[in-house]
Design a protein around this nucleic acid. Sequence first.
DNA 1: CGTCTGATTGGCAGAGACTGCCAAATCTCC
DNA 2: GGAGATTTGGCAGTCTCTGCCAATCAGACG
Lengths: 201, 201
Amino acid sequence: MTQGTQGQGSTTSTLWDRTRQLAAQEILQTALRLFTQQGYDETTIAQIAREAGVSQRTLFRYFGTKEDLIGGSQERFVTLLTETVREQPADAGAWEALRAAFKAALSLHTGPEQALERLRLVHHTDSLRAAYLGKRVRCQEELLPLVEARLAPSAPVRGQARAIVATAFACFDAATATWLEGNGQGDILDLYDQGLAAVRS
Amino acid sequence: MTQGTQGQGSTTSTLWDRTRQLAAQEILQTALRLFTQQGYDETTIAQIAREAGVSQRTLFRYFGTKEDLIGGSQERFVTLLTETVREQPADAGAWEALRAAFKAALSLHTGPEQALERLRLVHHTDSLRAAYLGKRVRCQEELLPLVEARLAPSAPVRGQARAIVATAFACFDAATATWLEGNGQGDILDLYDQGLAAVRS
DNA sequence: CGTCTGATTGGCAGAGACTGCCAAATCTCC
DNA sequence: GGAGATTTGGCAGTCTCTGCCAATCAGACG
């Protein structure tokens, strides 16, 4: 590693953080490969660390949890979601804003191939699915005030915003599950629209 | 368990299973008491076993998981839900059937006091909330075919049933959260109706 | 009543995730 | 090249959970 002294690259700091990021990615790729090869529960931290060439201790320093090896990327997901909602024009309604956020979030997927593989893994592993749902709930709570500000001020119903946000996410999940069931056939956002339309008919 | 010579008794059976059930309840009460006293994560299995007067090994034989000490009662919840949906009159729509199921499930709570305490515990402990959500998803999947049979056969939209079930549960969760936020003020089913109305407006 | 069978329990060892602690290696800056 | 800061690795330990085996206990049979 040590590329010598070398200059200051374009982006930022110290050529050292770059090594760190490389190591992190190495760990991540190894983990993902093993997870898809032999299953999440059947893969031990020790094995990942060994094959990635780091100690267990450092692996836990990079990713605090085994679940974070998959769900860690959901961090970006969450921030993108909230920021997209926040950036929507002021006259956009709650449903519109949420839909735009989902659309933006879906663009994070590098390709349908990898998305299918990753989503399948999460959906078929109980512990991963549970962890994902937990983070999702926290994300909903973050979104709550932003959505509340976009409701018609005429009728302030108790728990209205919460119901709307929860419903949007539920339909998004349903769309993902349906998409997964059909092996990636169609577009998730279309399925979301259809599901929501069926609900609000 | 060999029913042995059978009993005849209505519910009881061998006087021995009764002891078992007693032990199980003893464990459960101890666990719940400790959880509410000092928190879920701060309570160890060893402590529960010690104070309940059993070995760790038997505790794990009764309840396979630490989470099951709380979520185990959700089993009844799930079965009641599915059976209530199944028992609804044939002409009841999907929304009606789901609402009836939630109403029936809510009647399981012994009182608002205990319900509040229990729900608060689950909602405020990350691991418990995640486990609860995981079981909830499985429950949704069980309900899926039952609800699908109650949809208007005219327009078979892909993923329609899944979106509806997910939405119903989402609104139920939102209602529970709102109810919890208001310290048990009002009726959960009313909040559910209001939330769903806000969504389907 | 003694014994025998089958189920339950308890203790022990161990796997696996995760955390604190301390020494060694490494990078940065002078 | 050396001082200081950061990172890494290894070790020990906690906690949940599982497999294994001996000890125990309720009931059945002679």
